[in-house]
Write a protein that binds this DNA or RNA. Structure first.
Lengths: 247, 247
DNA sequence: CCGCAATTGTGCGCAAACGCACATACATCG
DNA sequence: CGATGTATGTGCGTTTGCGCACAATTGCGG
């Protein structure tokens, strides 16, 4: 458990928007845990016993292929949750959730969350809207994979990651980044080299520091912006719902 | 309205699984309409007034880029519905729904469906499970776009389309297929030529007939099979829920 | 049954990314 | 402080798909 990070459910935006009455009902089921770098929250086709609400760090959702290759389809930080299947009812899915950046989360048994969801209160509204955010993410990844260059993928990934850790530094080896994006490690090396040459990033072994974020955004494909817009739009709706509920 | 297709809500699997009590509540809002080839049910960022439950034909969901290029992220037939945003609450999305194969559908005002969804009955269970099916589709498209060849994309697309129209013939020009997949028309021409040379398909202008489906499945990437498995699995759950509700 | 627009076929050269094979550089730990 | 395993850099040939420019064909409307 990260010492610097005091346990506080409000740090997760979804939990933070629940009215006290609803929060109380799930509170006893919540458990604060740390998310260790590389930890696999759930694997392909394994049953998802818990749902995770990160308060810090990033969880990557990777869609896997039989030969072991994969592609990241979503990045989840403190704005979201890991394990929507709990609510959708399908139990498991052919993908994997891996901690990409260490942090912490509240977890709750899938059944408990599902029960509260089905009461039809604010939690339900919040989660449904979050499903749409996720959906948009996955859809945008699909087009991005089809039409954009490796350099653009990397830029998008950097920006999305930075937004979620609230810092300008990412701790991760090039090989792992390549794994996330589903490209070769050498490709990442070259793309990083190019970004460095243009003074957009600094880096050393296992660590990338973005020093010119504006430029990075300009070099990136539209995908980052689209996701940011849509995410902001839906987050606003979430907040207005929470407010109307007197939170 | 297709003359050969008698109006029958049961022809859509989601509607067909509702218990009579629930169906009655939305029945008056249902409107039977025809889906014309090429018709755009809703465009990028336009508000979605209606939700569509196809009884025949195929609707493609295309994620669009600013430069006009796009990529298909989901195929919807009589097993599903078009317009989940109605239920998620986000109103619109950066994608487009186009009729890929003419047919018919029941449509219902988004607000009416949303209201019934929030009663928390069988409709809700059915739709949530369908959201998971959709989710899996989009995610698989993302990996497929990253790792597989044009030839494989085409095979996957043919198989998914055939399953939804219940026939072995697809009426569509190569240019349009290319548009769906987000590749060049010439690439499709070549891939089709290759499939033809291997006696997997016959074709003439604007029409493809699959004559060796087994072979096509073998030549296809795993994506088709993954989607079929997951879709079957979830559909079974949907049916058992409907049964338990005494439908 | 003829003409014409739409559809399909083909031949380039080009660019992006892959696969493989190493060379180099870095940090950590005894 | 030097050894060692991990991380990063680089070269080169190959493949896939794109872009562009036409040629060839098909089938429908008059």
């Amino acid at each position: 458990m990260p010492a610097s990070d005091r346990a506080d459910p409000q740090a997760n935006l979804l939990l933070g928007q629940l009215p006290a009455s609803e929060f109380k009902r799930i509170e006893t089921n919540l458990e604060y845990i740390s998310l260790e770098l590389g930890e696999v929250l759930y694997g392909t086709h394994s049953e998802r016993k818990y749902v995770y609400f990160p308060t810090a760090g990033i969880v990557s959702i990777l869609e896997m292929l039989q030969d072991g290759s994969s592609s990241e389809i979503a990045l989840i930080g403190n704005e979201g949750m890991v394990g929507i299947t709990a609510v959708l009812g399908g139990k498991h899915q052919p993908n994997q959730a891996v901690v990409q950046s260490a942090g912490a989360a509240y977890r709750i048994p899938a059944a408990a969350l599902n029960k509260e969801f089905r009461r039809g209160g604010i939690l339900m509204d919040q989660l449904l809207l979050y499903i749409q955010i996720l959906f948009t993410q996955v859809a945008q990844m699909a087009v991005c994979n089809r039409h954009h260059t490796l350099q653009e993928h990397l830029s998008r990934w950097l920006l999305l990651s930075l937004d979620r850790i609230g810092s300008n530094e990412i701790v991760m080896t090039q090989a792992l980044i390549a794994g996330m994006l589903g490209v070769r490690r050498e490709g990442i090396t070259r793309a990083i080299g190019a970004l460095h040459k243009q003074h957009v990033i600094e880096y050393r072994r296992g660590r990338i520091t973005v020093i010119d974020r504006d430029r990075l955004e300009k070099m990136c494909c539209e995908c980052y912006e689209v996701l940011k817009q849509e995410s902001d739009r839906l987050t606003k709706i979430q907040k207005s719902i929470a407010k109307a509920a007197g939170n």
